[in-house]
Amino acid sequence: MKRVGVLALQGDFEAHSLALARAGAEPVLARTAADLANLDGLVIPGGESSTMLKLLELENLFEPLAGFGRLRPIFGTCAGAILLATDVTHPSQPSLGLMNMSVERNGYGRQIDSRVAHIEPAPEFEQRTHSGELEAVFIRAPIIRRVGPDAHVLASYQGDPVLVEQGRHLVATFHPELGSDSRVHDLFLSKL
């Protein structure tokens, strides 16, 4: 069984742990650099990216996390996607820079603009998991404004990429952990 860390500084790490367990992995809450040892992969959950960033700085976790990402897969949702990007706007803030993309925070607006959407994933996503529309829960979600040339856009919403794979990493601007469809977590586990 794959041991998958869930960065548990702040956010919906509990929902991700449950989703990983449902998908057949062993979730491990990670709060220190030592917790990153012996993990097959890591999830950076949704939450407030500015809060996570503050704790990464205060606890000297920035470098250990970037180092982990140079060796092992990371799956970031929402705030996690923001932390993995190379560029963050609205407002700009530091990030791990593990995925070549630009992300705009709160791209759709405030909570009143949060929504559940049903989207058609890219054929590649359906081939690698199984077919069917994807439920996307957007909570004060960011928008991916640019992806690098080697990115695979696995799903889009209103013309913007919302599920993107690049090399070993995967990001979603929505929250597959808040639904019952386990295909996105399955896809991540297949990469470990």
Partner: peptide, 8 residues
């Protein structure tokens, strides 16, 4: 969902 994001 937003409450979930505020946990911790």
């Amino acid at each position: 969902g937003l409450a979930e994001m505020l946990k911790g």
